[in-house]
């Protein structure tokens, strides 16, 4: 299978690409959002800010949305998860709107949230398969889905309980960085890809 990684131009994809290669899949970095829809699976990586990334996504937004609606498997990581939702408090522009809801700032004194946070109420098949219990985060915003039933794992930062993972069919968005969450994180990526083969 060939996995396409959409590059918003924000930089560092090293660890993600290496994580994909150790899971044994061929990956292609694509800066054109229309072309990004052409792989067997799409990865929306977690580097950058919402506004600029949404702007880079805009020319291919409809095409990508159609592909996701038609069943293209997609893993959204951190900002990538936020781009699956409608919009964000962080910046202007539209996400893909696949997940109904918007991103808001975490309600906490200590921001950004940087570090390893525990996952709770985990129902997601890939997170469970990987036995991923503590994951690495670097975020200030989180998606608040209109339908909390889509949330398949939660984390808590200070008093704010926020979605760690949101699932809709073949689309999985995670607020943490599996590619920075050591071997259980890699196992989660592997499980996700195995399940979309």
């Amino acid at each position: 299978m060939r996995v396409t990684v959409f590059d918003y131009g924000a930089g560092n994809l090293h660890s993600l690409l290496k994580a994909l290669s150790v899971t044994g899949v061929e990956s292609l970095v694509e800066t054109d959002p229309v072309a990004a829809a052409a792989g067997d699976a799409l990865i929306l990586p977690g580097v950058g800010a919402f506004g600029p990334a949404a702007a880079r996504l805009a020319p291919g937004r409809e095409r990508l949305r159609q592909a996701l609606d038609a069943g293209l498997p997609c893993l959204g990581i951190c900002l990538g998860l936020q781009l699956l939702a409608d919009e964000s408090e962080e910046g202007a522009g539209q996400g893909l709107g696949l997940i109904e809801g918007r991103s808001t700032r975490l309600d906490a004194r200590s921001l950004p949230q940087i570090g390893w946070n525990q996952l709770e109420a985990v129902t997601d098949v890939d997170v469970r398969t990987a036995e991923l219990e503590t994951a690495y985060y670097a975020n200030s915003y989180a998606v608040r889905p209109a339908n909390p039933g889509q949330v398949t794992a939660w984390s808590r930062h200070e008093g704010d309980r926020f979605p760690a993972a949101i699932r809709q069919g073949q689309v999985l968005g995670v607020q943490f960085h599996p590619e920075k969450s050591s071997w259980p994180g890699l196992a989660m990526i592997r499980s996700f890809l195995d399940n979309c083969r």
Partner: peptide, 8 residues
Amino acid sequence: TAERLFVP
């Protein structure tokens, strides 16, 4: 290192 390390 980034190609071999999967923690920050």
